[in-house]
Amino acid sequence: MAGAGILPDRQLAGPTAGSPPQARRKKRSRPTRVLPLLPAVVLLALFLLGPVVWSFYGSFTNAALTGAAANNTSFVGLDNYISLFGSSVFPTSLVLTIIFVFASAVVGQNLLGLGLAALMRNGNKVVRAIVGAAVVAAWVLPEIVAAFASYAFFSDTGTLNMILAGAHLPTINWLYDTPMVAVTLANIWRGTAFSMMVYSAALMNIPPEITEAATVDGAGGWQRMWNVTLPMIRRSISTNMMLITLQTLSVFTLIWVMTAGGPGTKSSTLPILAYQEAFQFSNLGYGTAIATILLVVGAVFSIIYIRALKPEVD
């Protein structure tokens, strides 16, 4: 990027009256100005857009890892989607995914995060530091380690059953009898920190005068929360809901380590099912179709998120 003729270019660049003052900057011939974008664009096109396009294409073929179709992949149209919705496995998995996202993210992480953030405002300084560290630690751990810790906690001879037995309560084989409960609780444990941090920051931005005014006017704790605090942080609430929904939608490692989708397919959410179909039952086209559906769902959520928040991009 040799910088030839900067000043003349600047004058030739034409009126910039319409653009905001921040953006009225050095003007030069267009091709060289966007050149620095090139490495990023190439990388994104090849390794992010590429797989997305490939996913759509692959979902219309009978691609397989082994067998006749492996060497001779052909176009099968909507066959994968038709058999997907016709099978019993896919609709079950779809329902499991919705339950998992709703229970662990929208309800669990979201409410617990908000609750923790609200409680911590009234907590003692030392207690606050302890709680913050404990909750965030579960989030900072690498996902495979968090998954092993959850596995140990919920396993038949694990910590939870030890505590239940100690309290003379009935024990449950969590990972086998109630796999969805186990992975949902584990995901709440793992991800609440994010919501807690978002809400802590949001609550800190509420001017104390406003809550005080509500108190003076006779509003109780719940009324203050419902009528003053929540409306003031609604932007953070919607941001947080969208982000944790997207994160939870693509959770794989946690469930894979804890139950591997089992027993049977009782905890196979869509990412697990896509993996099983593609790599264990060597049905690549089928797995790709599931991946494509997930991509579309993720894209829809992304678009809603961007439209709702209208982030400033200038």
Partner: peptide
């Protein structure tokens, strides 16, 4: 926003 793990 794309679920990257979903497209492995």
């Amino acid at each position: 926003g794309l679920p990257v793990t979903a497209m492995m």
